[in-house]
Design a protein around this nucleic acid. Structure first.
Length: 288
DNA sequence: GTACTTGTTGAACG
DNA sequence: TCGTTCAACAAGTA
């Protein structure tokens, strides 16, 4: 499922492709996946692309298109038949059919650009959405207003991490990492991986952490996200062969979805527990 | 038919 | 009012 690193990767890829292009047409195949007025999009030029937490924003003249991929969303940029055989740009939830013919059965919305290229928004389960808002109304969107600091920005220090997590001092540390008000963009995968990187038991209460532990946790979060961008990003964003699902970050994960597998560091069996209602994975030896 | 998956939201608890 | 926990929701897979 696309989290911060995946969305960041998509952003970096799309920046090179669609800034400056004009949107000729928007085709809404699944009305459920599209919120807002399509007229705000048609004929507009793409000015900029940004990311906040897991949300991708495509800035147009006077309006913004917001994308949330949730669990199974994907964005695929298809550079059209006319130009040199440049490759598709693929980001988001990996599936087999993302490298096949488009549109396919999970295609929900298609953006057509005036140079003939297209961008497909696919979403198997329709959990994700596209939302168009006027630029002036962007700031009042609740999902943007209440977000915590961006973990990859310079000013995100371990002190800020400590200060924010301590707002929920009696909760398990992993649960607080996933709270979007405390930190932006960390979901289940990277919360698990961050705890592993920091050699921290995810069940440990925030109030019991020492300064040293906050420091290593901070490093662990940043490393998990950067690794996500490095592996998921670089190997997934540009492939176009039939092995579409390979190179997904999960292959590199230490603990996520690895219950009953041996720990890559010490060989101990990875355990799974429920924490805040979510699957939580850790190595009982490394994260003691 | 059922259990399971996730991020987000809102209800319900003490 | 608050901090916290839990259920509901989206829809598809096994």
């Amino acid at each position: 499922m696309p989290e911060l690193p995946e969305v960041e990767t998509i952003k970096l890829g799309l920046q090179k492709k669609i800034i400056g292009l004009k949107i000729k047409e928007i085709e809404i195949i699944s009305p459920k996946s599209f919120i807002g007025n399509a007229k705000l999009v048609k004929g507009k030029k793409v000015l900029n692309i940004w990311r906040k937490a897991k949300i991708l924003g495509v800035e147009l003249d006077g309006s913004v298109i917001l994308f949330h991929l949730k669990m199974t969303g994907q964005l695929i940029f298809d550079p059209s038949t006319s130009l040199r055989a440049s490759k598709r740009l693929i980001g988001g939830h990996p599936t087999q059919d993302m490298v096949g013919p488009l549109p396919n059965k999970s295609t929900r919305v298609i953006l057509q650009f005036s140079d003939g290229s297209k961008m497909y928004f696919n979403d198997q389960r329709r959990f994700g959405w596209i939302k168009v808002v006027e630029s002036s109304k962007l700031k009042v969107q609740s999902f943007l207003k209440n977000l915590g600091p961006e973990p990859l920005e310079e000013r995100f220090s371990w002190q800020i991490l400590k200060q924010n997590l301590l707002k929920h001092k009696s909760q398990p540390v992993k649960v607080t990492l996933m709270d979007q008000k405390l930190i932006s963009g960390v979901g289940n995968i990277y919360a698990n991986e961050a705890c592993f990187n920091a050699k921290l038991d995810p069940r440990k209460k925030v109030s019991s952490l020492s300064d040293e532990e906050f420091r290593t946790l901070h490093r662990g979060v940043v490393k998990a996200l950067r690794d996500g961008i490095k592996y998921g990003g670089s190997t997934r964003a540009h492939f176009v062969d039939s092995e579409g699902h390979k190179g997904y970050f999960l292959d590199y994960a230490y603990v996520y979805w690895k219950n009953s597998h041996p720990c890559k560091i010490c060989g101990t069996e990875i355990k799974k527990v429920q924490l805040g209602g979510r699957g939580t994975y850790f190595c009982p030896n490394c994260q003691a």
